[in-house]
Every structure is written in C-alpha cells, then in structure tokens.
Design a protein around this nucleic acid. Structure first.
Length: 81
RNA sequence: GCAGUGAGCCGGGUAAUCGCUGCCGCCGGUAACCCCGCCGUAGCUCGCGAUCGAAAGGUCGAGAGCGAAGGCGGGCAGUGCCGGCGGGAGAGGAAAGUCCGAACUCCACAGGGCAGUGCGCCGGGUAAUUCCCGGGCGGGGCGACCCGACGGACAGUGGCACAGAAAAUAUACCGCUAGCCGUGGGUCGGGUGAUUGGGGAGGAGUGGCGGGGCAGGCGCCCCGGCACUCCCCAUAAGUCGGCGGGUAAUCCCAGCGACGGCCGCGCGAAGCGCGGUCGUCAGGGGCCGCCUCAAUCACCCGGCCCAUGGCGAGUAAGGGUGAAAUGGUGGGGUAAGAGCCCACCGCGCGCUUGGUAACAAGCGUGGCAGGCCAAACCCCGCACGGAGCAAGACCAAAUAGGGAAGCGAACGAUGGCGGCCCGCCUAAAGCUUCCGGGUAGGUUGCUCGAUCCCGUCAGCAAUGCCGGGGCUAGAGGAAUGAUUACCCUCGCGGCGCUCGCAAGGGCGGCGCGGGACAGAAUUCGGCUUAUAGGCUCACUGCGGCA
C-alpha cells in the first residue's frame, strides 16, 4: 500500500482511503477498504493526524499479519519525519 | 450401469473476541433558530419647570410614553444532539450488464403529418412488455426434447468471397443435334492394269508315274514323287468353281453316312422317332491345259460408316463447383432436346369439412413463374411526448448580487444645460430595516409492496380469486466487516483395512492446497451475461441381470 500523512492543529486522527477503479471491481475495492479500516482501527495513531492510504491489488491476497506489519512500519516512518 | 433431456433448488456452517450502519428501550449531559413576557441603552414623541430673547425660537433639568441593539425569564424541550448500557436487524441469484416493460415525479401538450426507434404466425396471461404459457408452421435429434425477429425478394436500389461455364440476365462459353461445304480413315460395290512361290518332316495300302536292282515269258523287289497331315522360309497375295483332254486303284473326298423300299414297335390315322432288313450311292480330286470367279497390289468412280475443320441454325438434357445452380422422379416424344405432353410429388387459386384462430385434410382447377440475403437500404402494418430519485418537495448559513422602504437630501451631495454666475433639471454612493431567488449543508422522497410464505379452488399451463400467517437492509465517497478455532466440501500426495485375477473401486484417518461468479443505491416485472461445487424430481436411448 501507499500512505500519506499530514498533521493538523487539533482533533482526532482521521483516515482516508483512495481505492480507484484501477484497483479492481467493486467487490475488490470494498474488501480493500474494509481491510484498511480494520488496520486503522487496531493501530490508531496518537494525536491530530490525517492518514490517506492507497491500497494495491496485492493486498487482497496477502495475509492479515503481514499487512499489520507494513501498516505499522509506514506509520512509524511518517512519524519520525 | 453408461450416455443424455427437461424442470426446480442450494450458493458453505457453527462459535468466540473486537468493530460498522439504522431501529427500539433505559440512564446521564445538554442546545439553537423562532415565539411570548419583562427590563432597558442610543434615539424619537409629549407636556412641565428653569433660563436667554421684543418675538419666532434656543439651551438646560427632571418626568411620562414608544423603543433599534442588548439583558433576564418562559415556551420550543428533556425534543434534537452527545455519551453510556442493553436488545434486535443487516447484500444477490444474478445485487452485474443497464437491454426491454411499468410504477412514481417533474416538464410539455388543439389536431394531423414527416423523421426516428422498436416490434411483426395464432390464442391466452399480465399493471405492462420485445416477457411468459399453450398451440400452428418450418428446421434439427434414434429419442426424451431443442431451435426459429416466423409480413414482403414481379415496388425499387444493392450485395453474393473462393470455386465454378454461369451467382441472376435465360444469355454468352463448352457440349449435343440434323443440314451445307471440305479433310482423313474404314468398309462395300463397280471399272482398268498387273501378279498369284519354295523347302522340310511324317505317311497304311494299292495303282499309275519317275529312277534303280533281280529276272529275262507273265513278272518280282527297292527308292523317290503325288493325293493326305504337319512345319519352315519368302510374300501384297497364293483360293472356290467350271470346261476339255488323259485316266489306275481295295486310295482320298467317305461314313457308326445319305437316300429309298419293306417289316416291327412307340401309337389310333397322317406325321415323326427308334430298331431290323434290303437296295442305291453319282460325281469329283490326283497328271496336263484353258476359262471364269476369287485373292493381292496400284489407280479411278460411287454408296455407307467413323473422326475432324468451317458456316449459319436448333437446343437448354449435360458441363460437380459451391453455402446456394433456373421445380423433382418416371414415361412418352424428338435430329438432339425441353412442362413440349402425361402420371405422381411439389407450388398457386377456388370450394368443402374440422378448428375461436394460426392452420390442417379432402376435392377441383391452373400453369410451371420470379436462387439466396430485408438483424442490407427499403416497402407494408402496428406501437411510441420528453427527462429521470443527481426525478421532485421542504428548511436554509457564509459570501456576492437583486427588489422595496427610511435616512442620506427639499437649507439640494453629484451630474447635466453653460465660458462663469443666476436659474432650471437631475436622487447616486453609503447606512439601517424588511423581502425574495439561491449555493454549501440538513430534512424528505425511502422502503407495507402489481410484497413474501403456506394452503384451498379455477385453469393443460402461464396465471388468477379466496383464506391464514409474516414484516425482511435503507447506506450516502456509501455500513453489512476483521481475526481465530472447529466442522463441511473439492483436488493432489502418501498410509492402513477391505473387495477384485488385474486395471481399479470402497472405507478410515494424516499432510498440503483450494471453495466460484460477484457488492444493494427509488421500487417492481422480465431479458441477457457470469458462476466452483452440490441436491431433488420426471423423462429418453443403449447395455446387463432376474
């Protein structure tokens, strides 16, 4: 997946998902969004930050544990900047 | 058991933990626009008092009333919203493609036509349909059954790859056919001319002939030739017959024969056949000559046949190729052929009968005409107003703009007329209040409906009536999920048990991998397309067993 982040003045952390039609049909886009939401729910970042995730096709076949690893790594990288 | 046909159904299950979106209940917190009441600043109005002034009027003071802004209280409302707890619900058979038909909403609308789009056998079902059911017709399949946009191809235009003589025009080409004019060949007939052998082998007996021997009177013996059979060489070819002369045979033609008489039998007459017996058997060939005929060759003439060239006709039978070829089969007919004629089939028309109808059957009659494609343009008939829930309705910030009233401003800003003044005409900017359109946003439409399930009845069926029961997603960048465990199921691998001669099958448990197509968006009825795996019922064909 691809991740963009941006800090805000105040408020909770927010999630945006950009699953385009290039990704696949409606079923596949829906599943990608659900998986992304689930990741965000389990690993919600601290503080007022906006996160935008662009899922890729490979997400659909990947096991959930590896997705968790990737999501947390991306979050950590964006936080250290 | 194998192979198939039709109809219907399912579309992984259970549990735990953590989540999402509506709904219901309880608890806690808590609004706003707006409305009503009260207070009240600026301001306005009213009179009173004081003071200045000749007056008009000015200034000051306190009071009363009205009252922007603002404040307080109440209603709105413990509503909505926020938070917590609990309960309950939450994707499909196609939610898909958005291809038809409707409901619903808004817009338009006197009538008619053109264009455009769709449809096109008959009857029924339905809110409606291009959908469904039943039937007809055509096609496919051994069959169950399946497929068909199924009006018109003399209204017109256009297309038909490759192959094929030709793809739409009854023509050209090939071919077939009689005629005429030629060429070549065959055959038949006629005419003229010429020509018509040689050798070998076998060969009973007699005779003659030729030669030789013995004998010397008659004669006897041997060899050769001829008749006959066969072969070889040469050749264009070598034969039937007649006449005359010669003339030997017991030889050849010639014999189990032919003809005739009589007798007998089949069988009764004629006749025929069989048997017996008797009689007759010419003539010819040989050696020589001649003639005709024949044969062969060459040349000439004619007839017929075959092949072929040309000419102008007849013909559409044939021309095998193609997805498709000018009605099919048989017979007659013809120079050859042809619906040219006839029979049957096919086709058109008419009548009758059956059927609601499409249509079918029967009878009669006509002529054989015009290939295929209209989901090519097109013609005929019928139907159709447009846009769509982002429809439409309601509430309504901020900003910008619009309208009205007041102040601005009647002691005339600004501008115009004008060189300037006077004069006349001209009412803007700005401010305040109110109104309307309208964007973001919110609410609604929005899920009780041609609804779902069960059953009775009517109907072949599609479907409908009636009765009973149920409430089953309503989101809005869009929820309906994530993870784990167990089970189910499919494939592969190897293991154990078991059946079998074997190939292989069954059962159990293990490991690995997989479980399709696909995500509601106003709602229904259809169609089309995608779909792993599985289930049920009915039916068909073939095979096996009893």
């Amino acid at each position: 997946m691809t991740m963009f982040t941006r800090n805000r003045e105040e408020g909770p952390a927010r999630l945006g998902i950009a699953a385009t039609r290039k990704m696949g049909a409606a079923v596949e886009r829906n599943r990608a969004k659900r998986l992304t939401r689930e990741l965000f729910r389990h690993h919600k970042p601290e503080g007022p930050v906006d996160v935008v995730v662009v899922p890729r096709r490979e997400m659909l076949d990947a096991p959930y544990a590896s997705l968790e690893l990737e999501f947390r790594a991306l979050l950590a990288r964006s936080k250290s900047r």
